[in-house]
């Protein structure tokens, strides 16, 4: 399993999860966990996904999520989970 974290930040609107999940399903990326909340008026969502069996390269996936972000007016990032583990877990 190769875990990555997708973070979505921006103004809440209809279809955010659908927009992101659609790309992921299309590329065979499995969603392991989702959490979302409103932090100081900003919609924030975090998804833990498995990119092990993704049909596209990580950079391509990242670019496509970025595109969805632009369409929905949101900031969407995907980063390998290790960077967060390294910083926040010993």
């Amino acid at each position: 399993m190769k875990k990555a974290i997708i973070t979505v930040l921006g103004k809440d609107r209809v279809g955010i999860i659908h927009g992101v999940a659609h790309v992921l399903a299309e590329k065979n990326v499995n969603i392991l966990d989702i959490s979302q909340t409103i932090l100081s008026d900003v919609f924030t969502m975090m998804m833990l996904v498995d990119v092990e069996n993704s049909t596209v390269d990580f950079t391509v996936l990242s670019a496509q999520l970025d595109e969805v972000g632009k369409e929905l007016g949101l900031e969407i990032r995907i980063q390998l989970e290790e960077i967060f583990q390294a910083m926040h877990r010993i």
């Binding site: 966990d33 959490s35 975090m46 989970e81 960077i83 967060f84 926040h88």
Partner: peptide, 12 residues
């Protein structure tokens, strides 16, 4: 699992 505050801190 990493929580949202931690993820946001790193991104910030």
């Amino acid at each position: 699992m990493i929580n949202q505050f931690e993820a946001n801190e790193t991104i910030h």
